[in-house]
Amino acid sequence: MKTLVMEEVSKTFPTGTVALTGVDLIVAAGDFVSVVGPSGCGKSTLLRLAAGLDDVTAGRIQVEATSTSYVFQEPTLLEWRTALANVELVGELRGVPKAERKERAREAFDLVGLTGFEKQFPRQLSGGMRMRVSIARSLVAEPELALFDEPFGALDEITRLRMQTELQRLFQLKAFAGLFITHSIPEAVYLSNRVLVMSGRPGRIVADFNVPWAYPRPPELRYETEFTALTGAVSAALGDHS
């Protein structure tokens, strides 16, 4: 089953900026696909189009998912709500009955390892914890397609590696299809079963790598020679087209 299909998608902004040209992309159920590309090549635009936040200029997008979630580059929490209340927001907006939405928020909250921090306000949390809240919020919608826009870009290296392990556990557990934008090639390779490389603006998909290892992947995988060989190949493809 194909969860997300993009065919010949182009996006030109009213300002005249051509962000994407002829993007073909398929995310099948069970896929976790990463997209790497130079800054400004249209990665966020690609994700916004997939989420329906913006319209394509040409081409077709088809989403077959009962629910789509989106994790932003910044945690994007409401500062006046406690951590748990931020997670409950999604249910409130979607009109989920109170008892059910509280239970679902609770579950997602515990799942990302935030138990005990319910009553903290975003300002009282570390960057990594805020991102966890943001991920928990995306999980309450029970997504079949989960979109991530460089969620770990602003985190320090140690937190980042830990979050990668957590995210891997989550999509194994929740079995959603993922489309993940990142700047980090090792992150893309470690998390995904496919890595797509985009060219500089206007963005196109210029390379498509299969990542062979089965999940769950141990953190040490990052130091294996096959792993570094693959990151090297992705890096080379990226270098050729930016």
Binding site: L53, Y70, F72, E74, T76, L78, L89, L93
Partner: peptide, 27 residues
């Protein structure tokens, strides 16, 4: 509120009223 916060409300199909009382006024 940032554009991303508005996107969050759009993605969850928030009504104009929800956007006002849950996002803009508290902010």
């Amino acid at each position: 509120p940032t554009a991303a916060a508005h996107d969050l409300f759009t993605l969850n199909k928030a009504t104009r009223w929800q956007r006002l009382v849950k996002l803009q006024l508290p902010a």
